[in-house]
Write a protein that binds this DNA or RNA. Structure first.
Lengths: 343, 343
DNA sequence: CCGTATTCCTAAATCGTTTTAGCAAAAAAG
DNA sequence: CTTTTTTGCTAAAACGATTTAGGAATACGG
């Protein structure tokens, strides 16, 4: 019925050589082990002929390496992560690695549980967006000597590899862009989190606002709220600050919620306000007005992550890679000249 | 340095029993194998004490079961698939399965390559959106006796498990909804594909249009076009059909492209036309006007898929599961009364 | 012609499980 | 008191690879 896959043993038997020899040859150690060219060719030829492919389970069991990379994000259905996942996937498969995606829901316990599972799996490498309190778990992982790369955010106190973007500068520039276009009362909607990326974004906003001698107006949503609660908070915030003329959302889902609130409760402001979001999104182009955004360089992040991962996997002695990429400001309708817009 | 994980052998040694006994007990076969209650408790107790967890590689090598489920879609970064992935992920992890996601780009060769890789991995089950010409590969997979579930579309000639939605009826109803609201010149934008879901959607539209004695106006984009080509085609189509008063996009990315085209080239029509999309999207709510859509029951699809998968995995003798779910029409601004809107 | 190198290859252990076949002791049956 | 059955457990093979340690045959040096 099901065609039994040939094993190294079958090759050995068929060619009257030992399993050892076959293994050496197939792993390219033929010359090193002084297997004669003749035998090498014989083995390679036959292996190709019967389309031999090693049983990776057996290999992994023996070597302890599974060639599985875990890609852990907050929520794989978030378009930002999903697109990144796609990029990672392509590179990984090319290089012969498999990727397991998973969502930690930005929850420490969940992160821990997942990591536990993967440790049992003897996963080869980890690319992780850590939840706020996952420092301990990450530390434990590091101590095992497995390749770990954090991204989007990191723990400054931990000596880890990471790939992040220059959040502070990006928000700073984007805020300046709003200011430069005539907006003066710029609100900043973020979530109360101590994670580097959020802290830095807030910093960038505050810096720009302060430099321009404007008042900072920040709404910090409690961490872990659901969408409707967030929307309610935003509604109140907008209501309590009727003089706002622009708003900066610190993440794409905040922008999503915010736009909905504006649409439903403040339809007039949708076109009057300057709007800026962190993380670009295909729909920001389509929206009317189209929404300006700080666009993270997804391709670059993805390929950098994999480049580092491959390096860590290849080299026994592991270098420390800490990469900060710069984001690009995607200007669209919503952040253009205030005067023009309010016409 | 790294704490060696305890194996079944360690347990055996420590308790002065054989590996066999330990294995039996840990697999719940203690009673069946007449291991005394005393020994059973001793083993279970000690296993818990040292937090023993089996090496899954070894287990898989021995049993041939990897507990890995492949979830193959066109493009994991498509929000529809990404959200589904999230749902599948949750259920699978709960049940002790791992999920590998991958994108076949709706390309047969790519599908084949991926399946090849996974076959080598001895993946336990497959949930697949098959590319158009993947019938052969799917057939091969079926013949191996591995659990396979298709979804979103299927091959009628193949005796497979599948979960799909009633595409024809959904489009039919949605088109009728547009007609009921006063639209008479309804365009249908789809891609030229022979895959069941697209064929059925077109059928539903045609049926509704015919019943209402309206003219059918269909734009079939060539398969495999990129976004900008598609947009160009749509622009021409809209231009060539200036009398259109509504448009139905057969997938979410077509709607996305179409909205962009309308926004850039026919801004007036954005509010005048009736607009309907297949596959709902968070942003359709936010868009102005908000976009009506046929919403696929994601939760239901996801849990149905996993329910079937778990059944296939559990029962040796496999039943055939062919499930057709119904989609829900999400009415929004863009499909409301024509008269009201054109005010 | 003996000892040492070199060449080419292999036996066997190992990774951590599962599972088949069976053994020794105790209990039951005769 | 023997035979059979049952109880309670285990030895060892297997899954399919990698890797260590070493062996036989030939070549070489003196």
């Amino acid at each position: 019925m099901k065609p039994i896959r040939p094993s190294i043993k079958d090759i050995a038997a068929h060619l009257n050589v030992s399993v050892t020899t076959v293994s050496f040859v197939l792993n390219g150690k033929g010359p090193e082990m002084r297997i004669s060219e003749e035998v090498i060719q014989k083995i390679l030829g036959y292996a190709r002929e019967i389309n031999y492919r090693p049983n990776q389970l057996a290999q992994s069991l023996r070597t302890g390496k599974t060639n599985v990379i875990v890609f852990m994000v907050e929520d794989i259905s978030n378009p930002f992560f999903a697109r990144l996942a796609r990029i990672i996937e392509v590179i990984a498969y090319q290089k012969g690695y498999k990727v397991i995606f998973c969502s930690n829901e930005n929850d420490d316990r969940h992160t821990g549980e997942l990591l536990q599972v993967f440790r049992d799996q003897q996963v080869t490498g980890y690319i992780i967006i850590p939840s706020a309190g996952a420092k301990k778990q990450i530390k434990a992982l590091l101590q095992e000597g497995v390749p770990v790369i954090l991204f989007d955010r990191y723990f400054p106190e931990l000596e880890t590899n990471y790939v992040v973007i220059d959040n502070e500068n990006a928000t700073y520039q984007a805020t300046k862009h709003l200011i430069g276009n005539g907006y003066r009362k710029i609100g900043f909607v973020t979530i109360a989190a101590s994670q580097t990326q959020m802290v830095d974004r807030l910093k960038g906003y505050k810096k720009a606002v302060k430099e321009a001698k404007l008042r900072s107006r920040v709404l910090e949503l409690p961490f872990g709220e659901d969408a409707s609660e967030g929307e309610e908070h935003m509604r109140k915030f907008f209501e309590a600050n009727p003089d706002l003329d622009a708003v900066f959302f610190a993440t794409n889902y905040l922008a999503q919620q915010g736009l909905l609130v504006m649409r439903e409760h403040f339809p007039g402001k949708l076109h009057a306000w300057g709007i800026m979001s962190f993380d670009d999104n295909e729909f920001f182009r389509i929206h009317t007005p189209s929404i300006s955004a700080v666009a993270q360089p997804l391709e670059e992040i993805g390929s950098k992550l994999m480049e580092i991962m491959l390096d860590l996997l290849k080299n026994e002695k592991k270098a420390l890679h800490q990469v900060v990429l710069t984001a690009r400001l995607q200007e669209r309708d919503s952040s253009q000249q205030k005067d023009v817009k309010s016409l």
